[in-house]
C-alpha cells in the first residue's frame, strides 16, 4: 500500500533504452515509407520526380490522381476489383456457412469422409496448381471473364472449417428449443446459427475480402484483357512500365503513389472498422493450421 509509485513495473536502465530504440527504429521504418507515399501521391508531377527527400509537401496537388483516372483509366480496374471481390466474398461466406452447418450434423452419414474430402483441399496450396488451373479455365472458357475471376477460389476449405468451428460452439439446447417450437432444419440454420455466429461470419468475410482484394497471381494469369484488370494487376502494370500492355509512357511517381493510395483505402477502412475480426481471424487461422 505504501510507496506505490516506487513499485512501478517498468523496464529500467539499459533495457529500457534498448526497447525504446527498437520501438523507434521499427516505427520509423514502418511509417516513413507509407508517409512518403501519401506526400508524393498528393504532390505535383514535377516535385515528385525531383531528387531528395519528399517528407513534406512542396506544393499540394492532385495531378497524380488526375493522371491515374485520365491516362491510366484506373476507375475501371477499381470497379472491377470492387465487383469481383464483393461478389466472390459474399458467395463464399454464404456457402461456407451452409457447408459448415452441414458438417456439424452429428448424425449425418459419411460426415467424416466429407470433412476429410474438404480438408484435404487445404493441404494443396492453389499456387502450386496454377498451370493446370489455367488450363481448366481455358477448357471452361473462363479466361478473360468476370465469371472466371469470381469462380476461382469461390469456395475454400479454410472458410468452411472456420464456420464449422464457430457453429460447434453454439449450445445444443438452443437448437433443441427451436426444434420443439417446430422450426425446420433451415429455420434452425437461419434463425439460430447464423445470428449467433455473426462474429464468425464477419471474420471469414473480412479475411476473405482482404485476400481477394490483394490477390495478384490468379487475376494476372486468368486475365490478359486490360478492361478486366483488377487493381493490383493494373498497379503492377504501371510499375513495370516497360512491359506495360497499354503502351502508355512511364507513369510518373505521383501517379503510381496515387494508384497505391486508391488501392489501399478500402483496406484501411476495413482495418479501422473491422480490426477486431481481422486479428481474431488471423490468430484462429494460425492455430488451426
Amino acid at each position: 500500500m505504501k510507496k506505490r509509485g516506487k513499485l512501478s513495473n517498468h523496464l529500467k536502465g539499459g533495457w529500457a533504452v534498448l526497447f525504446i530504440v527498437l520501438a523507434l527504429i521499427t516505427a520509423v521504418t514502418m511509417f516513413l515509407p507509407m508517409w512518403e507515399v501519401f506526400v508524393v501521391g498528393t504532390s505535383s508531377t514535377l516535385d515528385s520526380s525531383s531528387a531528395g527527400l519528399k517528407l513534406w509537401w512542396h506544393e499540394f496537388s492532385l495531378e497524380g490522381f488526375e493522371y491515374v483516372f485520365r491516362v491510366t483509366k484506373l476507375a475501371k480496374p477499381f470497379l472491377n476489383s470492387l465487383f469481383v471481390t464483393t461478389t466472390g466474398t459474399v458467395i463464399q461466406v454464404l456457402l461456407a456457412a451452409l457447408a459448415g452447418y452441414v458438417l456439424i450434423q452429428k448424425e449425418l452419414p459419411f460426415r467424416n469422409a466429407i470433412s476429410s474430402f474438404i480438408m484435404l483441399t487445404m493441404m494443396v496450396p492453389g499456387d502450386l496448381t496454377l498451370i493446370s488451373v489455367y488450363q481448366l479455365n481455358k477448357q471452361l472458357h473462363l479466361l478473360n471473364s468476370y465469371q472466371g475471376l469470381i469462380l476461382n477460389g469461390l469456395i475454400s476449405g479454410f472458410s468452411i472449417m472456420m464456420m464449422r468451428n464457430y457453429f460447434q460452439t453454439v449450445p445444443y439446447t438452443l437448437e433443441e428449443a427451436a426444434r420443439i417450437d417446430g422450426s425446420g432444419e433451415f429455420g434452425i440454420f437461419a434463425r439460430i446459427y447464423m445470428p449467433i455466429s455473426l462474429p464468425g461470419l464477419a471474420t471469414v468475410f473480412f479475411m476473405e475480402y482482404v485476400a481477394r482484394w490483394n490477390s495478384i497471381m490468379l487475376p494476372a494469369t486468368l486475365v490478359t484483357d486490360e478492361s478486366l484488370y483488377t487493381l493490383p494487376v493494373m498497379l503492377k502494370a504501371m510499375i513495370m512500365s516497360t512491359e506495360s500492355t497499354s503502351g502508355t509512357s512511364v507513369a510518373p511517381d505521383n501517379a503510381i503513389m496515387a494508384a497505391i493510395i486508391i488501392t489501399t483505402v478500402p483496406l484501411l477502412l476495413i482495418y479501422v472498422f473491422a480490426q477486431k475480426f481481422l486479428l481474431n481471424g488471423i490468430s484462429m487461422g494460425a492455430v488451426k493450421e
Binding site: I216, P232, L235, I239
Partner: peptide, 14 residues
C-alpha cells in the same frame, strides 16, 4: 494488409 503490388510499388519508388 497491403497487396504486393502496393508494397512492391512503394519500395521500388523509395
Amino acid at each position: 494488409l497491403l497487396s504486393w503490388s502496393v508494397v512492391g510499388g512503394l519500395w521500388i519508388t523509395i
